[in-house]
Design a protein around this nucleic acid. Structure first.
Length: 580
DNA sequence: GCCGTTTTCGGCCCGACTGTTTTCAGTCG
């Protein structure tokens, strides 16, 4: 098998660019959407793209037909796509950036380009300042002002999505404010935040109330709101001061709450599947309810009722990505015991002032206890991690004495003696086996020498897993969302080896890591690999990262029994050693 | 461009909001 020249993300990006260019050309919208759906499909693949291409299996993927298969195949095997290059050559290179501006879509970009010869953000800015844009049909003075605002925003945010961990706390605070406003019956977050996507672009809140006005006002006047972008009879959009975050609130009668919540939770792909299923049954599903073809409105009290109408199991929001959940729910094969925060008995992966953490062992213990947890694994860095205050063996042994003291002092909470030991370049671990065997929990992670090639890096991790004292593989891919690519690793090989050797795999809940990601969680559970949800805490507040690890586990369809730290401490320790 | 348990052709989710209009087009989610 030859390694693909281009990765999934690149293929998806090319397909999305084609979609935009086709829209610019005024092509059939469904044709451009086919490229978008193809991009989604490729991005969501758990299997190796190179293998799928070389085995000619592209066309077996839903949404990929002969035309896309041929183009993707060309791109993956040669690194180029003639169709894309030809298409792109018809337009100035800056044109695609224009589409990223708010309220600017393909029709407006086409008009700006054809009528005014505008091909870049800079040219658009100049034209707005000179008042040339208002001369165009469909544009006015207000449009020019809004475009200039949008350009400023574009330059600040560069269109980047935000980490879920940066957005969720803001979203939950706003939700509480909406919930407390006059006349609200029900309220919930929606959108990618509710689905717990790794990154989100905005916040959706859905509320039910007999009168919408006061609820919309509550959001518009919330602390932290920078500008009110728009406010109508049922909808209000604001931009927060923090991080240019946009928040959309919809308020409707309570009888429409469930269908609206479902609609605005998405994902779009999941939703389209459901609408089509409804169509087959003579039902029209929209945010305004479910209607029979004769116009009668069906009562839908909650989302479960909506799925029941379609003869499906309820699909939890985290699974609504059209990754097989629709088929599984129709067949009654969707797991009903996905892991929840309430299932988690202990937190894995915490640092203290002994290495690079900010809080003492006792402070960490008290904070974990306050969250209702029963145990916390203390896993400082090992000796090689000099930059992170890694512990020499003597210091590690002194720490055990303090752990014993804290365990006496904080009843109901047990600190477990562990380590986050470095995986050295050779694949050896940074402590002798004689030290490792005395520890209750051994996490092994890579922290240095990221630049090795795929073969070397894979070999390094496989070798590490052969050490019988290693219990958990820590943040296995090393990615930092939006700032560092994963190590070049054959993850399928790693997960298969973990299954064979009885090594557990971490789902690191630090919002910038979420490592392993949901797709690999699903792969891991299929292979029978046991998982732990971790907080990778460097301070008290980081214990809350567990919630993001649990969300990632759920997005990967992990059940309670797949996650070892849902067990009480003693059984957790036994399970870590089972199969080792 | 993709798809099919009435289809290999003719569909493909649909409503709110804004700014420009004077009945609507474009964008967004």
């Amino acid at each position: 098998m030859t390694a693909p020249i281009v990765d999934k993300a690149t293929v998806a990006q090319v397909l999305r660019d084609i979609s935009l260019l086709l829209q610019l050309q005024g092509e059939n919208g469904f044709r451009s959407r086919a490229y978008d759906m193809g991009a989604d499909r490729i991005l969501g693949l758990t299997q190796d793209l190179g293998a799928i291409v070389s085995e000619g299996r592209l066309e077996s993927l839903p949404g990929i037909g002969p035309a896309l298969a041929e183009k993707i195949s060309e791109l993956v095997t040669t690194g180029r796509m003639t169709y894309f290059e030809d298409l792109r050559a018809k337009f100035p290179p800056g044109l695609l950036d224009l589409m990223k501006l708010p309220d600017i879509g393909p029709r407006k970009v086409a008009a700006l380009w054809k009528e005014l010869g505008i091909g870049s953000v800079e040219e658009l800015e100049a034209a707005c300042r000179e008042g040339r844009v208002r001369e165009l049909k469909g544009f006015g003075a207000k449009s020019e002002a809004k475009i200039l605002e949008g350009i400023a925003l574009f330059r600040r945010a560069r269109g980047e999505r935000k980490l879920l961990g940066d957005v969720l706390p803001i979203a939950e605070a706003l939700l509480e404010r909406v919930r407390a406003s006059p006349g609200v019956v029900r309220a919930s977050l929606g959108g990618s935040v509710r689905r717990r996507a790794e990154t989100v672009s905005d916040v959706d809140i859905i509320a039910s109330a007999a009168v919408a006005g006061p609820v919309l006002d509550a959001l518009a006047t919330s602390p932290g709101v920078a500008t009110v972008l728009g406010k109508g009879d049922s909808k209000c959009s604001v931009r927060m001061e923090a991080g240019d975050l946009q928040v959309d609130l919809r308020v409707l009668p309570d009888e429409d709450f469930a269908t609206a919540l479902h609609h605005f939770t998405g994902s779009k792909a999941h939703h389209i599947r459901l609408r089509n299923l409804g169509h087959e049954r003579g039902m029209k599903i929209s945010e305004w309810g479910v209607h029979r073809d004769d116009g009668t409105k069906l009562q839908v009290n909650d989302e479960a009722a909506l799925y029941a109408l379609l003869d499906m199991q309820f699909v939890p929001p985290e699974l609504r990505e059209d990754n097989g959940e629709v088929e599984a729910a129709r067949a009654g094969k969707l797991p009903t015991d996905l892991v929840t925060m309430d299932d988690v008995q202990g937190a894995v992966h915490a640092h203290s002032t002994w290495s690079d953490g900010r809080n003492s062992l006792e402070e960490m213990a008290l904070a974990a206890k306050a969250l209702g947890l029963k145990y916390l694994t203390i896993t400082e860095h090992s000796e090689a991690a000099i930059y992170a205050g890694g512990l020499k063996v003597e210091a590690l042994k002194r720490q055990w004495e303090e752990i014993d003291r804290v365990n006496e002092a904080v009843p109901g909470m047990r600190l477990l003696k562990g380590i986050e030991v470095d995986i050295l370049e050779s694949g050896a671990l940074d402590y002798d086996d004689k030290v490792l065997e005395q520890l209750e929990v051994v996490i092994a992670s890579i922290h240095v020498r990221h630049g090795m090639d795929e073969e070397q890096m894979t070999r390094r991790v496989l070798t590490a897993m052969d050490n019988p004292h290693l219990h958990i593989l820590g943040h296995p891919t090393g990615r930092l969302i939006q700032s560092r690519e994963p190590y070049p690793l054959r993850m399928e090989d790693i997960l298969e080896h973990a299954a064979k050797r009885g090594v557990s795999v971490e789902i690191n809940g630090k919002p910038a890591r979420l490592d392993i990601k949901a797709e690999y969680v699903r792969k891991a559970t299929q292979l029978g690999v046991k998982l732990v949800v971790s907080c990778d805490a460097h301070r008290r507040e980081d214990l809350g990262n567990l919630a993001y690890a649990v969300a990632t586990a759920r997005r990967g369809w992990a059940r309670k029994q797949d996650v070892l730290n849902t067990l009480p401490a003693e059984r957790f320790l036994t399970a870590l050693r089972a199969g080792r």
